[in-house]
Design a protein around this nucleic acid. Structure first.
Lengths: 208, 208
DNA sequence: CGCTCAATTATACACCATGTATAATCTCCT
DNA sequence: AGGAGATTATACATGGTGTATAATTGAGCG
């Protein structure tokens, strides 16, 4: 290794702050309604930084988007995960998960649409997204492990996980919502779908 | 109207043939594994035509993709629709629909991914896709109308349609399949999910 | 056959985005 | 103050979309 004058000094914090500012700016630009507004130039301008700085931190558009998604998923989408383990039963825990994700998809609908879009054209980002989507799967498995499988063991465990994973994906919320509703508004619908899958017939109690 | 020397002569057929050739070429390029291989230049070259000709027929990339999707949906995805009405009951008809769509998604997986991608960034194409996806919804409604709603009327009709629509979407097949399976291979899985929603407990008979 | 006119082509151009390269400048840290 | 890393300014190559325009081809008609 070459000698480093500022191995882990205070400077690193400033640099990291710049990094975060860029990621935040990227999130904001991605969440704009204007579909064609996303470019590294727009991101750099909003971050108060040169386009070159963006390239210095991340090496490409795909990597930047990957990091944005990474941060968002970990910090926003699944931040309420620990609380779900306090739920009284499996149904309640899954209801909580649906609500969490519904809110996240709602806050980031435009961003998610563009993320999926770019991933469809950029192999690098595509791999990152696939990886990050494992996060959701692991969450489902953890909940199922904690509260036990449903009474009806007709469906195999792994298939149940697959099913829940699809029902909890962004695409489910997005297409259920369509152009006129918001993802958050279809949360009750998704909850009913999941109850249907689990074999519980009707919702037990009122739940906001 | 200005006078037209070749109002509806034989020539029009040749022109339309050229149009079709371009659409076919676009489908082929879209179905290549190489994610970044799609450009109007590549389409034109594969069609044995100049890029200008593409712009003469369609006015933009978005419009071309819209027409590609239109043709594919009408000619390939739903061509087997009439046969479904000969099914012996609702479950069988929906099984048939699942099979039809599974095969279509399988044949056009790369294309669908890129289509969704571009639509996420191009507002024009996005509108076209939304419109074309109504085709699936109408198919579901027609089948439900012909065979009657399931015995269990616990869920409302429109919500049932929404649910089936999501389960039959490309995204469902694509994410259930993941990187290792094909959309066609998850057809049985989707059929079980739908039976679960309809309230029928287990598959009635063997079905290929 | 030869003319006409639509369609296609050839060519050039403007614009914008990604990504690379390089030298100059800034600024924190020692 | 000085050194080194981070940022900037600037230029450039590449590749895609979309527009404009003149030249060329070829089917259909008299």
């Amino acid at each position: 290794m070459t000698p480093r004058p500022y191995p882990k000094g205070e400077r690193k914090h400033l640099v990291d702050a710049g990094r975060d500012k860029i990621i935040a700016a990227a999130s904001e630009v991605l969440n704009l309604d204007d579909l064609s507004a996303f470019s590294l130039d727009a991101v750099a301008r909003r971050a108060g930084v040169t386009r070159m700085t963006v390239y210095n931190h991340f090496g490409s558009k795909g990597v930047l988007l990957g990091e944005v998604f990474d941060l968002l998923v970990e910090r926003d989408a699944f931040s309420g995960m620990p609380a779900l383990f306090e739920a009284k039963d499996l149904g309640a825990a899954l209801d909580g998960l649906v609500g969490m994700l519904g809110r996240f998809y709602d806050d980031n609908r435009q961003l998610m649409l563009k993320m999926v879009g770019v991933a469809g054209l950029d192999p690098d980002l595509d791999k990152v997204l696939l990886e990050k989507n494992q996060r959701r799967r692991r969450g489902i498995e953890a909940i199922l492990g904690k509260f036990g499988a449903p009474k009806k063991p007709a469906v195999e465990r792994s298939e149940l996980v697959n099913t829940l994973d699809v029902l909890l994906s962004f695409h489910t919320f997005n297409s259920l919502a369509g152009p006129d509703r918001t993802p958050a508004q279809v949360v009750p619908h998704v909850r009913r779908m999941i109850r249907g899958i689990l074999g519980e017939r009707s919702a037990p109690a009122r739940r906001r």
